[in-house]
Simulated assay, not measured.
Amino acid sequence: MEYGSEGLVSVRCDVYSYGIMLMEVFTRTKPSDIKFTGDLSLRTWVNDSVPNAIMQVIDSKLLR
């Protein structure tokens, strides 16, 4: 679900959306990727990877 889909806009929504956009950039994965089903989302995938497995979710091309 997109955070502003209900038509309510706030600074909090903007900050959340900006965070999701940063996760997309660093992981090179979209929130709509087919691997995100059920309770798994881009946010939970990255959050579950912090701090021990964060290098496995970051796009390897950024590490060069």
Results as ranks from 00 to 15, higher is better:
39 D>Q: 02
52 N>R: 01
64 R>S: 13
51 P>L: 06
35 K>C: 06
53 A>T: 07
23 M>V: 05
39 D>K: 08
60 S>N: 09
47 N>Q: 10
19 G>Q: 12
54 I>H: 05
52 N>M: 02
55 M>T: 08
22 L>R: 07
12 R>S: 04
29 T>L: 14
21 M>Y: 07
13 C>D: 06
19 G>P: 07
43 R>S: 10
32 S>L: 00
60 S>Y: 12
38 G>E: 03
46 V>Y: 00
4 G>F: 11
43 R>E: 09
42 L>D: 05
7 G>H: 01
22 L>G: 05
46 V>R: 02
4 G>R: 09
38 G>T: 04
42 L>I: 10
39 D>S: 09
45 W>E: 12
20 I>H: 05
2 E>I: 09
52 N>G: 11
34 I>S: 15
53 A>L: 11
25 V>P: 02
58 I>F: 08
61 K>D: 13
21 M>R: 07
24 E>G: 01
29 T>V: 08
9 V>H: 12
14 D>Y: 14
26 F>G: 00
4 G>T: 14
54 I>L: 15
16 Y>N: 06
10 S>I: 01
44 T>W: 01
35 K>H: 01
33 D>W: 05
58 I>K: 02
38 G>L: 08
30 K>R: 07
32 S>V: 00
56 Q>Y: 14
45 W>A: 13
11 V>K: 15
13 C>R: 12
2 E>G: 15
8 L>K: 03
30 K>C: 10
40 L>G: 01
2 E>T: 07
56 Q>M: 09
35 K>T: 06
